[in-house]
Computed example of a mutant assay.
Amino acid sequence: MDWAVFIVTAGSFVASFVNAAFATGGVYILLFTSSSVLPLSAAVPLQSAFAAASLLARVALFWEHIDWRIVRLFFLGCLLGVGIGTWTFAALPERAIALLLGLVLLLLIWVPQLPSLPVKHPFVFVGIIHSYLGSLFGVGGVLQPLLLRTDLLKMQLTGTLAAAMLSLDLLKAIGYSSFGFNYADYLPHIIGATIAGFAGTWAGKCVTHHVSETLFRRVFRILVSAVALRFIYVGLLGD
């Protein structure tokens, strides 16, 4: 058995379950599990492929709740952010990416909520910033807290976030491929993550009303902090 495929598949199931049940959070789980068995130079580009099934399932299940205006504005910003982010990713050494990723994760999980942007169409600028960080580190972390501050209900939040992330991941996959990353080299990992993504999303939607969100957020913050410290260690001292 290829343990890397098994761990990626298991991580994808847990990540998609968390995303369906709580609208967000699974991306950190998926990044941690995949980067623990794959080099960061592969794990970051593969986040788009690993998350595709979960995102597609959530878009289908929550289609009628999606706020397409937000998705369109976010996508426009991503067109610029992805281009710059994938170029930066290709230019930086892996240890530098690991160190910066750890610092960004700590910032996103512990710094108070971001302020609202005083502009007419804030989600265009959110798209630029989020997609740049997402292309460089595998996680953006800007869109989620800002969406939580809108008047979207839980179902609308889950569907809108999934549609926005799916559009971003399509652009990221094109960007990484243009710099020579070959997704076909990791086809077994992608297939496992795809099957697990659909299964985890279905399971998460079934229990979305029966899980303590307070406990989840507390445990989630601790886990992400541990992941961040691991990346900082790798960036400073190596594996």
Rank of each mutant, 00 (worst) to 15 (best):
L80Y: 09
L80K: 07
L80I: 13
L80Q: 04
G81Q: 03
G81Y: 06
V82K: 00
G83Q: 13
I84N: 00
I84M: 08
G85C: 10
T86M: 13
T86N: 11
T86V: 15
T86Q: 12
T86K: 09
W87I: 08
W87P: 00
T88N: 04
T88G: 05
T88P: 01
T88C: 09
F89V: 09
A90K: 13
A90P: 12
A90N: 14
A91S: 15
A91Y: 11
A91K: 08
A91T: 13
L92K: 10
L92Y: 12
P93G: 10
P93F: 10
P93V: 09
E94L: 07
E94I: 05
E94C: 06
R95L: 14
R95D: 12
A96H: 12
A96K: 06
A96D: 13
I97F: 14
L99G: 15
L99F: 15
L100W: 08
L100N: 02
L100P: 04
L100D: 05
L100Y: 10
L101A: 08
L101S: 08
G102M: 07
G102V: 03
G102E: 11
L103R: 07
L103H: 09
V104I: 12
V104G: 02
L106W: 01
L106G: 14
L107R: 09
L107W: 14
L107A: 15
L108T: 05
L108Q: 07
I109T: 12
I109A: 12
W110V: 13
W110K: 11
W110F: 15
W110C: 10
V111W: 15
V111N: 12
P112F: 11
P112L: 09
Q113W: 13
L114N: 03
P115A: 04
P115N: 07
P115Y: 05
S116I: 08
L117Q: 03
L117M: 11
L117K: 03
P118I: 07
P118W: 05
V119K: 06
K120M: 04
K120Q: 08
K120D: 09
K120Y: 04
H121T: 11
H121E: 14
P122C: 11
F123A: 00
F123T: 00
F123L: 07
V124E: 06
V124L: 14
V124N: 06
V124S: 03
F125Y: 14
V126F: 08
V126D: 04
G127H: 01
I128D: 05
H130Q: 13
H130T: 15
S131Y: 05
S131D: 04
S131P: 03
S131N: 06
Y132N: 01
L133R: 01
G134C: 03
S135K: 02
S135L: 06
F137S: 00
F137Y: 08
F137R: 00
G138E: 03
G138T: 04
V139G: 01
G140H: 05
G140S: 10
G141V: 09
G141Y: 07
G141E: 05
V142F: 13
V142N: 02
L143F: 11
L143M: 15
Q144S: 15
P145T: 11
L146W: 07
L146E: 04
L146Q: 02
L146A: 11
L146N: 02
L146M: 12
L147I: 10
L147T: 03
L147K: 02
L147S: 02
L147P: 01
L148G: 12
L148Q: 11
L148P: 06
L148T: 11
R149A: 07
R149P: 00
T150F: 03
T150M: 07
D151T: 10
D151I: 01
D151C: 01
